[in-house]
Amino acid sequence: MTEPSTPPTTPMADLLLHPIRWRVVQRVLGREVTTTDLKHDLPDIPATTLYRHVAALIEGGILTVVRERRVRGAIERTLTLDQATTSARIEVDEARAMTPDQHRRGLLLLLTQLTADFDRLVERGDLDSRLEQFGYSQASLYVDSADLDSLREGIKALIEPYLQAAPGKDRITWSMFSLPDT
């Protein structure tokens, strides 16, 4: 009797559907950060593990090294992820190649990260002072494929001016989902 084969995963799915790499991408999203910043932002991840996953994200073309500088004999890299043309997403062809369990894992990673970000906000006691930047909602839309493409392009054009850091601007994480109704 032959064992059932596991469907092949896509390179992007392999990179992004890992909890540590997902957390790294979420921390870099919309910013330039050093590996030292990442160690500070993700203190529960051992440095060697963090560096290994950062290297995988660089090699996979998700993170880009924008600067390097020598600090106490070591090279410190500054990393970014270009949100306007981000490669840190799973395209339709790759999504088609994914199994239902891989899709579930991807959504679970996103929801886990959102929950962790919310918990940090609440634990710091910042929620009341930041309510104007906080919100969640859900709406049902009636669209066909062309409408959905148009909506996505419109949202992309709408948010593009806000993807880069600027003086006096706070960083927020804005997440959207589109799920077909059953």
Rank of each mutant, 00 (worst) to 15 (best):
H53N: 14
I62W: 03
T9V: 08
R72Q: 10
T35I: 04
D149R: 02
H40A: 14
D126Y: 10
E76H: 03
T78G: 05
T10E: 07
I45V: 15
R124M: 08
R52D: 12
L42S: 13
L17P: 15
T35L: 13
L50D: 09
L121A: 10
L114R: 01
S140I: 13
L57I: 06
G135V: 09
L151N: 01
M12G: 06
G61W: 01
V24I: 15
Y51T: 10
L109E: 10
Q113M: 08
P8R: 02
L121I: 01
L29A: 15
E76C: 03
L38G: 15
D128F: 00
E94G: 12
T36H: 14
H18F: 00
D101F: 08
I20N: 02
A97D: 05
V54F: 11
R52Y: 05
L110P: 04
E59D: 15
A88T: 06
L15I: 09
P19C: 01
L57Y: 03
D147L: 05
L79A: 06
P7S: 14
H18M: 02
L114W: 08
V65Q: 12
L57T: 06
L127R: 04
M12L: 14
H18D: 13
P46D: 02
F134E: 07
D101P: 01
P19V: 01
M12S: 14
L141N: 02
I75Q: 00
I45K: 00
R96W: 13
R52K: 08
V33F: 05
T35A: 07
L57H: 05
R96D: 03
L38Q: 03
L109Y: 02
A47C: 11
D37H: 08
T49D: 08
